[in-house]
């Protein structure tokens, strides 16, 4: 209990309701995202996981609700846009776009540059260093249409890393990647956490939640539970979250 009171939060979501047309996707969501944690957002298909991230990032307009970014004294960037970085699902873009890997990673610097200003040598250096970090240094001049699913994901991750943000939102970064890439991404996430960054990940694989994350939010239209993995991620909460889907939780060692 004592630990909990010492938690510092970076984002507070209050009374958030989002609907597409008339169908509500998120209903009256209250959520606090703690600083320096690796948080998984878990729930069945259509539970509103991606929508939650997009609403927090102000990418869609909610029906109601309030999203508060809490300014910490240690934060260097005053602009909220520059404090957060977003890794969208890699399937949402046209990978036949005429561009190289380096071009795409450089796009991550555009937010810090602002309107009109072009990326310079310093930005290119950061992009190349980051490509090395995600194990893609040999691919910097490669055309993006030639990348595998795992490589695409690494490129997207690099694009977010060059933003040097405080809070990272990732929409299913493990989707369609090989085991090797998954392990590499997990290492990067832990590395971010060690630097005191906050990472929020939409995650599908219940088997790996305890291994990868230390914080979890269970969601299905409403927030079922949110807290430390060892306190919140148990059979009863999972049953409530996946109730409507009739999904069996066979083999779950919880």
């Amino acid at each position: 209990m004592d630990l909990k009171t010492k938690l510092e939060y970076v984002i507070e979501v209050a009374d958030l309701t989002v609907a597409y047309d008339v169908k509500p996707v998120l209903w009256d969501v209250d959520l606090k995202i703690p600083k320096g944690k690796l948080m998984a957002v878990v729930g069945p298909n259509g539970a509103g996981k991606s929508t939650l991230i997009k609403a927090i990032l102000n990418l869609l307009i909610p029906i109601s609700g309030n999203i508060k970014f809490i300014q910490n004294r240690a934060d260097t960037k005053s602009n909220i846009k520059n404090r957060v970085a977003y890794v969208p699902q890699s399937g949402n873009v046209d990978w036949d776009f005429p561009s190289t890997v380096l071009d795409v990673v450089l796009m991550g610097r555009f937010g810090l540059l602002g309107w009109i200003k072009r990326p310079g040598k310093a930005d290119v250096d950061i992009a190349l260093q980051t490509l090395k970090k995600v194990g893609m240094e040999d691919y910097s001049s490669r055309q993006i249409s030639q990348l595998s699913g795992g490589q695409q994901q690494r490129v997207f991750l690099a694009r977010a890393l060059v933003q040097q943000a405080d809070i990272y939102f990732m929409d299913e970064p493990f989707k369609g990647v090989d085991t090797k890439t998954e392990k590499a991404i997990v290492l990067l996430l832990k590395d971010l956490k060690d630097q005191g960054k906050t990472v929020v990940v939409v995650h599908h694989d219940l088997q790996t939640v305890t291994e990868y994350f230390d914080w979890v939010t269970l969601i299905n239209l409403r927030v079922v539970a949110s807290g430390p993995v060892d306190e919140v991620f148990h059979q009863e909460n999972l049953r409530q979250t996946y109730r409507s889907t009739g999904m069996l939780l066979k083999g779950m060692a919880v």
Partner: peptide, 17 residues
């Protein structure tokens, strides 16, 4: 630069402001 990022990934462009 803006047209390029908007054409490739408009959602990401929006997240950058």
């Amino acid at each position: 630069k803006e047209f390029k990022i908007f054409t490739f990934d408009s959602e990401f462009a929006q997240s950058l402001g």
